[in-house]
């Protein structure tokens, strides 16, 4: 039973975007701060630190999770994916990312990483998710720029593209 006392810094090991990483942090550090300021993965953004805005959403073991509501210490042994892990290759966008660009589903881009991680998790788990399910999933995110409609369009377009690719590979 590990005990992390308030004074110390502790090694936390987990998988980040497919790579095993170890980072050192005090027991009270939030996962957002560990990702951004210890590991330098600044694509995950911080908007409210009380779990409402969704900007910091990452995938933990395949599920979308608010990184601001998770202690870094709780990431021990987890498989975490952030927006930095979405690109298939440098300079190449995933179908979801490409759909966001094509449908102007982002403006300032600050909330976008969290939204991408949520939608990516949903489409991976439920490839046939209905538009209602997509909306219900998106309702956990606040976007102040787009008015949301282009995001829904992009999600549906990405879904169609992914299904097409799936069919082609089958």
């Amino acid at each position: 039973m590990p005990k992390l006392s308030r004074e110390g810094r502790y090694a936390i090991g987990f998988r980040l975007n497919g790579q095993e990483v170890t980072a050192h942090a005090p027991g009270r550090m939030l996962l957002t701060d560990l990702l951004r300021h210890v590991l330098g993965e600044t694509g995950t953004h911080v908007g409210c630190e009380h779990g409402v805005c969704g900007a910091c959403t990452v995938q933990v073991d395949g599920e979308p999770v608010r990184a601001c509501l998770m202690l870094a210490a709780q990431a021990e042994g987890a498989d975490i994916r952030t927006v930095e892990g979405l690109e298939p290759a440098a300079g190449e966008l995933s179908p979801l990312q490409a759909a966001f660009r094509e449908h102007f589903a982002l403006q300032c881009g600050f909330c976008t990483a969290g939204i991408l991680m949520s939608l990516d998790a949903l489409l991976a788990r439920i490839p046939d998710a209905s538009e209602d399910a997509i909306r219900e999933h998106l309702s956990g995110h606040l976007c102040r720029c787009t008015g949301y409609a282009p995001i829904v369009k992009a999600a549906l377009a990405a879904q169609a593209q992914l299904k097409e690719e799936e069919a082609a590979n089958a």
């Binding site: 951004r36 993965e41 600044t42 694509g43 995950t44 953004h45 911080v46 952030t82 927006v83 930095e84 979405l86 690109e87 300079g91 966008l93 990312q97 966001f100 660009r101 094509e102 102007f104 982002l106 300032c108 881009g109 600050f110 976008t112 990483a113 991408l116």
Partner: peptide
């Protein structure tokens, strides 16, 4: 298409806290 988007969509954009 917006030239701003690739960096924003991949987490490489630089905001003040980055």
């Amino acid at each position: 298409p917006r030239v701003e988007d690739p960096a924003l969509l991949t987490g490489r954009a630089r905001f003040v806290d980055d």
